[in-house]
């Protein structure tokens, strides 16, 4: 116990020393040069009548999807690869899927009490609307596709916890439908990335050639759909009970 207190106090002292050195003593030299030339470039061009504009007052979204667009595009591909990895680890043949369904119908049907379920319904509606506003307004105010999508994934998780996986599947959010929606989001991103090449003789992802903020809005909406349904896909696959997987992998079918 004494050692714990000692460790905690030494951590705090180190933290205070570092923040004192950076803010008051200015060891990194950030005080005399608050805006770097690169940052100044973004601030001057993101929403200005020039060739390098992004048609967006939200400089962060402009950097994320236009000036540093390839980073975000490849991030989307990394996310795609990790989801495909999860799906291929948990892949099932069609007969096995039927077995999973018949085994799941035998599972005891459990759900939480009325208060939790009613509150969850209200909260989920709020989260969905807020995540939509984060994503669809992402080119004007702080936010964007990934932020909105991850907020939406939390709504899906709440539904999972308060109700069950079967509630989602009864509402039509089966694995197949979710994969289709995910593919639609990715297709929207790719189409927007390629559109300047074919329509305006530009380069890949040169979305400032597209009229107005179409490019940023399309990419945000595509990322929103992709992230939402990507997370949901992983949760649906992980939601299958462990004992069912064990039964199927051992081949113990009655």
């Amino acid at each position: 116990m004494k050692r714990d207190v000692f460790v905690a106090i030494s951590f705090l002292m180190a933290f205070l020393l570092i923040s004192y050195a950076i803010t008051v003593k200015d060891v990194l030299g950030m005080a005399e040069n608050p805006l770097r030339p690169l940052g100044g470039f973004y601030l001057r061009h993101a929403f200005a009548p020039s060739n390098l504009t992004s048609h967006s007052p939200e400089v962060v979204t402009a950097i994320v999807w236009n000036y540093r667009g390839f980073d975000t595009l490849f991030e989307t591909f990394v996310f795609f690869l990790s989801i495909m990895g999860a799906l291929s680890i948990f892949r099932l043949t069609e007969e096995q899927e039927k077995e999973v369904r018949s085994l799941e119908s035998r599972e005891p049907h459990r759900h939480m009490d009325l208060i939790t379920r009613a509150t969850t319904k209200l909260v989920v509606i709020m989260i969905v609307s807020i995540s939509a506003s984060i994503a669809l307004h992402g080119h004007l105010t702080p936010g964007g596709g990934f932020q909105g999508g991850s907020a939406m994934a939390v709504a899906a998780l709440l539904l999972f916890a308060a109700f069950s996986k079967f509630t989602l599947e009864r509402k039509g959010l089966t694995l197949r439908h979710v994969i289709t929606a995910y593919a639609f989001g990715l297709a929207l991103i790719l189409a927007t990335a390629i559109a300047p090449v074919f329509l305006y003789d530009g380069r890949l992802l040169q979305i400032n050639l597209l009229p107005g903020e179409t490019g940023l809005l399309n990419l945000d909406v595509g990322e929103y759909i992709a992230v939402t349904f990507g997370f949901l896909m992983v949760f649906l696959v992980l939601g299958i009970s462990e004992w069912i997987f064990k039964v199927i992998l051992r081949g113990e079918i009655e």
Partner: peptide, 16 residues
């Protein structure tokens, strides 16, 4: 922008 993503991931998805 970071707050919006960080809260949803760190409190929601990571915890779950």
């Amino acid at each position: 922008d970071i707050v919006l993503a960080y809260l949803a991931i760190a409190v929601g998805a990571y915890t779950a």
